Simulated scan of single mutants.
Amino acid sequence: MIGDFRVIPVVVLHDPASADDLGAALVAGGLPIAEVTFRTEGAATVLRRLAQRGDLTVGAGTVIKAAQVDQAYEAGARFVVSPGLSAEVVRRCQALHLPVIPGVSTATEIIAALDLGLDTVKFFPAEASGGLPTVKALAAAFPQVRFVPTGGITAQSARSYLDHPAVAAVGGSWMVAPDLLAGKKWDEVAERCAIL
């Protein structure tokens, strides 16, 4: 599901009332997917409003507790992303048949993800953890794993990640930057979605 889009907008939206405008901009830009981070009070509301549109694949990001999995699931999340690897979060997602992509940055964490039955992981924080050279090294050791690098990825660097066969998708915020969302610059959001 994630790999169908290749680029996942990582959304931090403080104003739930803007969710529909954001959803329309993502769709207009040809990127009908969003990872709504659970870093704001209204995250579940934003997720629910985006999911109710019916023309977006919406997931929850920054999920670090099993209770947040339930909250995301009830709001309509179709996938869950975590900045780290929590067995509790993974198992709760598996119980709900909800795809989960935990964050890893080391071989040990990848092995732990494999032990939990996963084969797709978020490589995070990508740029701070060595970027594409590290992805290449980890992919060589774990050919069965697909990576979703996130953290510091830009419109300029995304293509080099996406060209690597082990990369399922990249997560980024350049198309949903805080200043664009705060300024309600929906046309620019749509334009940035269409860059790749």
Results as ranks from 00 to 15, higher is better:
residue 24 A to L: 10
residue 147 F to L: 11
residue 166 A to F: 06
residue 1 M to I: 10
residue 187 D to L: 12
residue 115 D to C: 00
residue 30 G to I: 09
residue 173 S to M: 06
residue 31 L to N: 02
residue 107 A to Y: 05
residue 14 H to W: 00
residue 194 A to N: 10
residue 86 S to C: 07
residue 35 E to L: 04
residue 67 A to N: 10
residue 177 A to S: 14
residue 103 G to E: 02
residue 44 A to M: 13
residue 159 R to W: 11
residue 153 I to F: 10
residue 111 I to D: 08
residue 182 A to S: 13
residue 181 L to N: 03
residue 71 Q to S: 14
residue 1 M to S: 15
residue 57 T to A: 13
residue 114 L to Q: 15
residue 35 E to I: 00
residue 22 L to V: 02
residue 181 L to S: 11
residue 135 V to I: 14
residue 49 R to N: 13
residue 127 E to A: 11
residue 136 K to A: 14
residue 92 R to E: 15
residue 138 L to Y: 05
residue 72 A to F: 10
residue 37 T to L: 06
residue 55 D to F: 08
residue 108 T to R: 11
residue 185 K to E: 15
residue 143 P to L: 12
residue 67 A to H: 06
residue 104 V to C: 10
residue 57 T to P: 01
residue 78 R to M: 03
residue 178 P to Y: 05
residue 8 I to Y: 13
residue 180 L to T: 01
residue 113 A to Q: 03
residue 9 P to A: 03
residue 118 L to E: 02
residue 69 V to W: 04
residue 76 G to P: 04
residue 37 T to D: 04
residue 30 G to L: 09
residue 36 V to L: 09
residue 71 Q to D: 15
residue 158 A to C: 13
residue 149 P to A: 10
residue 119 D to F: 03
residue 22 L to D: 08
residue 149 P to L: 08
residue 48 R to I: 05
residue 148 V to A: 11
residue 188 E to P: 03
residue 117 G to Y: 11
residue 182 A to V: 12
residue 63 V to E: 06
residue 55 D to R: 12
residue 175 M to P: 02
residue 186 W to C: 07
residue 163 D to G: 14
residue 180 L to G: 04
residue 114 L to I: 14
residue 194 A to L: 00
residue 188 E to C: 04
residue 168 A to R: 13
residue 52 Q to A: 15
residue 8 I to N: 08
residue 84 G to Q: 10
residue 125 P to D: 07
residue 3 G to L: 05
residue 188 E to I: 05
residue 109 E to Q: 14
residue 5 F to G: 05
residue 195 I to F: 06
residue 73 Y to S: 13
residue 41 E to S: 12
residue 51 A to W: 04
residue 126 A to D: 00
residue 131 G to V: 09
residue 178 P to L: 03
residue 4 D to K: 15
residue 194 A to I: 02
residue 22 L to G: 00
residue 153 I to D: 07
residue 170 V to W: 02
residue 167 V to P: 01
residue 106 T to D: 12
residue 48 R to L: 05
residue 175 M to A: 11
residue 113 A to S: 13
residue 89 V to H: 06
residue 59 G to K: 02
residue 114 L to G: 01
residue 154 T to W: 13
residue 149 P to R: 05
residue 143 P to G: 08
residue 70 D to E: 15
residue 146 R to P: 10
residue 75 A to C: 11
residue 128 A to E: 11
residue 19 A to F: 09
residue 82 S to W: 03
